[in-house]
Nucleic acid binder design. Structure first.
Lengths: 230, 230
DNA sequence: TAACCATTGTGTAAAAATTACGCAAAATAG
DNA sequence: CTATTTTGCGTAATTTTTACACAATGGTTA
């Protein structure tokens, strides 16, 4: 450590991550049951201390990988929490991120340092350790704002999905119901989906067309000044 | 320091602040010319190390007060920068904020620890120390997004202002020109301004009505579900 | 097998919001 | 007094949003 920097006090810094998952029914958050103090046996977000040779993103990936077996998720920085009493051990900052994951694509692996891991509906969260309820609430609002102007919802779905599945996701995130036909038109008109030619069969009504997010087309549209909007 | 925390590495943490000011012509940022290494005699944002007994907001206020004589500004957290090489002294995180200030309401006071302080147009920034050009660029975009859905622009103006002065501010922030008459209607229709009954005289044409931001009314409207939008 | 049911894909008209202007009024400048 | 500049208000055309209607397509059931 350079001498200049040692003159200044240094806080502890953790990285916490709100992992959003969607199972087709409701928006959920991944919670970890702690094996150690503080907040033993209580539920919290996934998090850990930042190492000095890691960027935030690398730290998040390490934490998600070691503590839950998750890798390659969509990540976004949320906010940095610095309240004086947010950790009983002392002054600990939390650089918080949120992640989007399709839970069907991963098998959760409970790391050795935790009691348990579970998906918990955003509607029905227990009281969490630290200020993690507040962090989740901010993440929820941020995600709701984000999906209205950036097509990030697809990170939560299978590669192929019906329009109704996409709409259900949006309704879960936004907490409001949308008109099916207007939603359909708005999304298809935006041009960011490609039709796969396949259909969702086996249900008891008309089979719905399966779409996929057309990332190449989306990036092309963005360069032309297009702005996605729900 | 609690024993548990001492097991973990602790990075240095600075607070940096993008102070936006508007002089009626162009959007500017407050820059500081450094008296010490690193980046001696170069321009940077206002910043400093976080003390362990301070929240971020308290730290920002201390820094702005000591280094520039500014107090009571509108503050908002921007982002936390954690690149491994952003400070030549070692691993230093920057929890960045932006502030809005009416430069006419303050006399800048150059603190003892700086060579100089100056307002610099956002259009004409020099190469700054650290990653501060990047921070300003992010702040500029964030502010541009913010003013379209929250009435924060008033923080940059005198208490009383004409509609044209407000429009000029918006054009500076958004970097695009707006139709004068449509802007007038949109703002007045939103109901967040109160007319003062006074007029801006002394200019060479028809005197313009002076308005003021009606904060009480705005908060009332917000509670009723109103959403400001430009 | 035919009628029925749930859901999908497409269309369309009314309402609302945005955009692009026109023009008289109110001050100063010459 | 006339010209010039900028303000405040108005209005028509256009675009976007909203609220529905309805036929098509599959499974389900009588």
């Amino acid at each position: 450590m350079n001498n200049d920097l040692s003159h200044y006090p240094r806080p502890s810094v953790t990285i916490d991550c709100v992992v959003f998952g969607y199972d087709g029914e409701q928006l959920s958050v991944l919670l970890l049951n702690r094996k150690e103090e503080p907040f033993v046996n209580q539920w919290t977000l996934l998090g850990g201390f930042l190492n000095l040779d890691e960027t935030f993103e690398v730290a998040v990936e390490r934490i998600l990988s070691h503590k839950a077996g998750l890798a390659g998720l969509y990540l976004e920085q949320l906010y940095t929490f610095g309240g004086l009493d947010r950790d009983p051990r002392g002054r600990v900052l939390s650089v918080s991120y949120y992640a989007l994951v399709n839970p069907r694509q991963f098998e959760l692996v409970v790391g050795k340092m935790a009691n348990d891991l579970r998906w918990c509906s955003i509607q029905d969260l227990p009281v969490l350790g630290f200020d993690h309820n507040r962090i989740i609430e901010m993440a929820r609002r941020r995600l709701a704002a984000k999906v209205t102007y950036q097509p990030v919802g697809f990170e939560l779905l299978n590669e192929q999905f019906t329009m109704t599945e996409l709409q259900d996701l949006y309704e879960s995130i936004l907490g409001e119901s949308l008109d099916r036909r207007n939603f359909y038109k708005k999304i298809t008109a935006s041009g960011i989906l490609k039709s796969t030619g396949e259909r969702r069969t086996g249900l008891k009504s008309r089979p719905a067309e399966l779409f996929a997010f057309d990332k190449t087309r989306y990036e092309q549209l963005m360069q032309e000044g297009f702005q996605f909007k729900i």
